[in-house]
Amino acid sequence: MADIDYRAVAIEAGLPRVGARPSLWRYLVDLWHRRRFATTLARYRLEATLSEQRLGIAWVVISPLLQAAVYGTVFGIIMTSDSRPDNFVPFLVTGFFLFTFFSQSFSQGAKALTGNVSLVRSLHFPRMLLPVSAVLKELYTLAPMLVVLVAILIGFGELPTLNWLLMVPILALMTMFNLGVALIAARLTVHLRDIGQLIPIITRILFYASGIFYSIDLVLAPPAHPAWMLQVAQFNPVHAFIELGRGALQTTQELEPLLWVVASGSALVTLVFGVVFFWRAEERYGRA
């Protein structure tokens, strides 16, 4: 019995190896076929978190608004300085809402595999669906925030212009970038759980580096600081998305061409790298 060459038996019968990672193309085709799983899971997850609270969907908006109010009070009223641009409230709220979309995609994406172990262990499906679903959920969450943002913009005298339509490509690029980051974080967290501890710190650094409650252009203005500092700060993709959003929504803010380059370049590179990086470890995720 021990002398049977089982491998030869399997090959002769044309049986493929179980769990072998499919080619990237097949993987993406499979992913596309099951896209409804990702969208449905995102919707159900959102409904489940909201249904546990009295105010439900309102929290999606209230929570970042309250945080923005705290920063607005501290930096706009108590510690005033000339690093705050004109019409500070829409500036702050736009920045805060867009940053929330990024930071939530990052942290929820990182938990997408390690937080769904029972699902991963019981059913077979392309694991990429889980981080995709996590980012989709954050995108859904952004929708009511944008409605409130529109009300705030109008309330502070920023009337709708054609430029507002630029939010569509901006958010599309930002979603690509966020998905890439979520995929990278999801795989790294499987290899090393400790990454989870670093995420809040990285988020915090990016929060201060992305000019949420101050204008990077004003703070790092050339005479006070060497010119390279501003240039480096402008290569931060998160800052680029936020600045583009402000430029599209506020007439007092400019839309710089460099920002488009940074935003589209980082979105493309991060997404492609994230997809390949995640796919390459597909066989490992069951071990989580």
Partner: peptide
């Protein structure tokens, strides 16, 4: 195929489906 082997391999004509006890779905 939910657990990667340290050595050896499993070959199957179709993707086997596992029904376990600790799978609470969501």
């Amino acid at each position: 195929g939910l657990q990667s082997p340290a050595a050896g391999a499993v070959y199957a004509s179709a993707r086997p489906a596992l029904l376990g006890v600790n799978a609470a779905l969501i």
